[in-house]
Design a protein around this nucleic acid. Structure first.
Lengths: 217, 217
DNA sequence: TCCCCGATGGCAGCAAGCTGCCAGGGGCTC
DNA sequence: GAGCCCCTGGCAGCTTGCTGCCATCGGGGA
């Protein structure tokens, strides 16, 4: 392969770079806006297989917050982490998707063209090095997936947390109000406010949200 | 250091092995019953620092299900995973805690003795190799932390899941029953059964459980 | 001081949720 | 078919949750 080539369309990209994806030895680095960006299903399988064995490459993926939009993506990302990959979320939008393999090859996505999207694949050391340095900078600035998800939970004041715990303990409103030293009316006001901030229409729904967000602690 | 030494007590272990923990280059392997077993706080910090940089050692930790007993430990483990460590849960009890560093040194915990717990530290290749092989076998047989947690969720039949979704959608019982094509009475029976299997005393509590267990899908 | 404002709590009425009881109804075995 | 069992649904009565309304209270600010 020439040091730098331009490729049109996903299919050709797959055909021309499949051997690169399956040759990953040490590091597979990927930056993208969301999970739908790269169509490299074969590569995913190869990467998965490799992680299972010792001497696995280090896998790092950097996404925009957009990658967390739907539940399905979240599930996928957490599975990625389970398999030993590292996932971080950047503040930036990451419009130009990038893959770097073993610091030897870089694949950069460009604009859409009539014949499909345009990609640049290069093995030129200076180019790859530069791209890698940029990635490192973005990587360092980004936050861990787990931390990001934890930070995402709405910040509740101490009062709301108390009410939350009372609700979670399963007691009736009367008991909870007594334990918290407030009237039934006020307690129910707090509950109603909590449902409002959690955007829930029923107590059950609020419980689900609280459980998902790990607020019940 | 002699090839194999026996050490009494946690303090001496720390003193004699601190340099080993900070010398980890490629792989840090640990098997233990739970998180309280090893007192190596310094090592944790060292490992943490290393993971932040490239060329990080591969960290693998194998625990018994007992390590998941309390919420605090779960939190700690998931943070470990966030930082790029791999955590698996074994079916076995793992009574003999083991640490292997770079396949060069092994630390094995033994029985409690009057002068503190007894530890064996060795750098003998055959010994370390043997221990490592045993660890690999146990590791392969164990399941990923994430998978384990997912499998832990109680299995609900299709009907219960439907009810769960209805509850999660936030509609009233009357609406839900109509949508599910059953009477109000039966729907409420289903809800009551669900609360029972989730061991919840209120709908909110059931919601929390469902959210925690990721059942709301 | 007076007024305003926000938070609280009591009350009342309604809506929603919970459950015991009993009456079908369908499938099963004998 | 008879008896049995389990599931369902209606009814009723009760508890719990929800909220509008109003009175009260305490802390600023004009």
């Amino acid at each position: 392969m020439a040091e730098t080539v331009t490729i049109q369309g996903d299919l050709e990209l797959l055909a021309r770079t499949a051997h690169l994806f399956s040759s990953v030895r040490e590091e597979f680095v990927c930056a993208a806006r969301d999970l739908d960006t790269w169509p490299h299903h074969g590569a995913r399988q190869a990467a998965r297989d490799r992680v299972r064995h010792s001497g696995a490459p280090r896998i790092r993926k950097l996404y925009s917050p957009a990658a967390l939009a739907d539940e399905h993506s979240r599930e996928h990302l957490s599975q990625l982490v389970d398999r030993g990959g590292q996932v971080r979320i950047a503040d930036a939008a990451l419009p130009h998707e990038t893959i770097i393999i073993d610091r030897r090859y870089a694949i950069l996505a460009g604009a859409s063209a009539p014949g499909g999207r345009e990609y640049t694949v290069t093995g030129a050391p200076t180019l790859v090095g530069g791209v890698h340095a940029l990635f490192e900078a973005a990587w360092e600035a980004a936050t861990n997936l787990g931390d990001f998800l934890r930070a995402e939970r709405p910040q509740l004041d101490a009062g709301s947390r108390t009410v939350l715990r009372a609700l979670g303990s399963g007691v009736t409103d009367a008991t909870a109000a007594r334990e918290l030293g407030m009237s039934l009316r006020t307690y129910r006001r707090r509950v109603a406010e909590l449902l409002d901030t959690l955007d829930a229409e029923s107590r059950f729904q609020a419980g689900v949200r609280a459980g998902e967000l790990g607020l019940n602690r």
